[in-house]
């Protein structure tokens, strides 16, 4: 049982992580780096205004005073980020497969179709429900206190997961209603946010970034669900 849980989670997490890394590399990194150019003032959304960074340098001065190891730094940065992406997806995979095991403990078998629904629900809970209050952000976008946002994010993700589980596996109408209530509750409280907008990057860049972030997450969650379902069933011990 232990081997089955950890092995299928590891395989599925690495597979989803691989897809996520490829998408992050091809779709996201360029936009993140461009967002940072606006964040540091190397680029300005409003042409004609000379932007200075925190050290009072213009972009050109900052580039000249750089240590010259930029390319090496970028490689290292991407390597660390991609490692973190793999670890993140193995983390989600462990939670998903733990959920599979818990469900089967109650005598409900997880089929491939169920696994696909789990993947979709994972995207819904972790990205869509949290994104209502805290949408994906380019670097440099001002936002409310990080601890408050993390607290709201975790609460929203957790209640959404429980809410979807109640809607999917509850046996009474009351369970379904409670699930919906849990999905809505964090949004009645509302996410911590600022009173005004003062982002540096152009809205077009931000918009593209948010759309792609959802696409990367959606595709990765589908891969995770299908892979977790496949390995979970594949590694099942034949009945004695």
């Amino acid at each position: 049982m232990t081997t089955r849980i950890f092995a299928s989670a590891l395989f599925a997490g690495l597979l989803a992580g691989l897809v996520a890394v490829l998408l992050q590399w091809s779709l996201m990194e360029k936009l993140i780096l461009e967002g940072e150019e606006y964040e540091t003032g190397a680029k300005s959304h409003f042409a004609g205004v000379l932007k200075l960074n925190e050290d009072g340098e213009t972009a050109e001065q900052a580039a000249e005073s750089g240590d010259g190891g930029e390319e090496e730094g970028t490689t290292r940065r991407f390597a660390l980020a991609f490692f973190a992406t793999f670890v993140t997806w193995v983390g989600w995979a462990l939670l998903m497969v733990a959920g599979f095991a818990l469900t089967e403990r109650y005598g409900v078998r997880i089929t491939m179709k169920d696994a696909l629904v789990w993947g979709t629900a994972g995207f819904g809970a972790i990205h869509v429900m949290t994104g209502i209050g805290l949408p994906p952000e380019l670097p440099g976008q001002p936002a409310a206190e990080i601890e408050l946002r993390q607290m709201w994010w975790i609460t929203t993700a957790a209640t959404a997961v429980i809410g979807f589980a109640l809607m999917g596996y509850g046996r009474k109408p009351f369970h379904f209603a409670a699930g919906i209530a849990l999905l809505i509750a964090p949004h009645l409280i509302g996410a911590p946010r600022l009173d005004d907008y003062s982002g540096m990057a152009p809205p077009e860049l931000s918009g593209e970034y948010v759309a792609r972030s959802y696409a990367v997450a959606f595709i990765s969650w589908i891969v995770l669900g299908l892979a977790a379902g496949y390995f979970w069933n594949r590694l099942q011990q034949p009945p004695a």
Binding site: F78, A84, T85, E137, Q150
Partner: peptide
């Protein structure tokens, strides 16, 4: 695992996972 890649604020975790957090919309 998710705590370290998504939430830990110590700069070693934050900086390493920075682009991942932004891509996957963890509060950063």
């Amino acid at each position: 695992l998710l705590y370290f890649t998504g939430f830990a604020q110590a700069s070693v975790y934050h900086d390493s996972a920075h682009d991942t957090r932004h891509t996957l919309a963890f509060p950063c």
